[in-house]
């Protein structure tokens, strides 16, 4: 089992490395180079040349890739193409906001999705199951902005309970910050819950249809014991994996939700930078998102391996 987990970890590392290469190559495909872009049309050839030398842009692509990689390892994310500011500083102020939003959304979405999925599975084919099915079918196919705008129209504009844009400012109390965050969190929860609830239900239903659950019933065991001893241990692997995948879903969902609510986070920064074609910032943000996504999916696989009884008892 240990070997399998290590192997999965190795694959994860390779994937992150491969994504850095992909991001670097994307930068290489941009027409024009960093120096002329940063200095703009009014710059003289001499100043452009000086900047090129100072940033090491005259080196071969391979050398520049390694230098960029080395910088990343030291936490140096480079300079923004449009304003020349340190990307590290640009991101630092937003990373916290993003983590706060993602964390809150996960804290609500994960228990909610598990509860809905479990309820639907345990009361299979009842009205609860039907309701969860309809709810997830609707939410899974609906874009974030639809919910967000309905929520804004009702909760912010019509009822005036909450602000329609979500910009936390320094000096706000915790209560005020939470108020600001309600709508984006709600949107993320609604759009990320469906998938997990469905997968949780499917895992539990699959476990309940195993022959050994039938055996447990034929052995005359009470229902509670069957669920506790024979169903749940075999659901842990798929469900824990699903939970981690939700987190990955939330990370990606953030990008759009932050834009909707003008929330100053990483997602909004990335979308803005794409519009401005600020490739260095896109690279830095893309790497952080991709690495998080890869890491979470890797963790999901590792959990599945760790919970698999066949692999666990093999050694």
């Amino acid at each position: 089992m240990g070997r399998l987990i290590l192997r999965r970890g190795g694959t994860g590392g390779l994937l992150v490395l491969a994504s850095t290469l992909l991001l670097f190559l994307a930068g290489e495909m941009m027409p024009g180079d960093f120096a002329s872009k940063l200095l703009g049309a009014s710059a003289t050839p001499e100043t452009v040349e000086a900047l090129r030398l100072s940033r090491g842009l005259d080196a071969s692509p391979a050398a520049r890739y390694l230098a960029w990689l080395g910088g990343l390892l030291h936490g140096d994310l480079g300079l923004s193409l449009t304003n020349g500011r340190e990307i590290g500083a640009l991101i630092a102020s937003r990373l916290g906001n993003t983590l706060l939003l993602a964390g809150l959304a996960a804290a609500v979405a994960v228990p909610l999705a598990l509860a809905l999925g479990t309820l639907a599975a345990v009361f299979r084919d009842s009205w609860i199951d039907r309701a969860v099915l309809v709810l997830t079918m609707v939410t899974v196919a609906t874009p974030e902005f639809f919910f967000a705008y309905v929520a804004i129209a009702v909760l912010a504009v019509e009822l005036n309970w909450l602000p329609s844009i979500s910009i936390p400012r320094p000096g706000m109390s915790v209560w005020e910050v939470l108020q600001v965050l309600v709508l984006p969190v709600l949107t993320l929860v609604v759009t990320s819950t469906a998938h997990v609830a469905r997968m949780t239900r499917a895992s539990i239903v699959a476990a309940m249809e195993q022959d050994y659950v039938g055996t447990a019933m034929l052995k005359g065991l009470p229902r509670g014991r069957i669920v506790l001893r024979h169903i749940l241990p075999n659901v842990a692997a798929p469900v824990s994996a699903v939970v981690v995948m939700t987190l990955a879903d939330i990370v990606v969902g953030l990008i759009i939700v932050e834009t909707i609510f003008a929330y100053p986070g990483m997602g909004q920064l990335m979308v803005d930078s794409v519009a401005k074609r600020d490739i260095t910032v896109v690279q830095a943000c893309g790497l952080i998102f991709a690495a998080t996504y890869i890491f979470l999916n890797m963790a999901a696989d590792m959990l599945a391996i760790a919970f698999n009884p066949r692999l666990r008892s093999a050694r």
Binding site: A26, M30, V252, R277, G286, F289, Y293
Partner: peptide
Amino acid sequence: DLFMALPPLILALLALSVTGT
């Protein structure tokens, strides 16, 4: 596997920043 390990939206954003919208 490599491309499916990356979030789809990130790939799209990257491509769009290279070519412009």
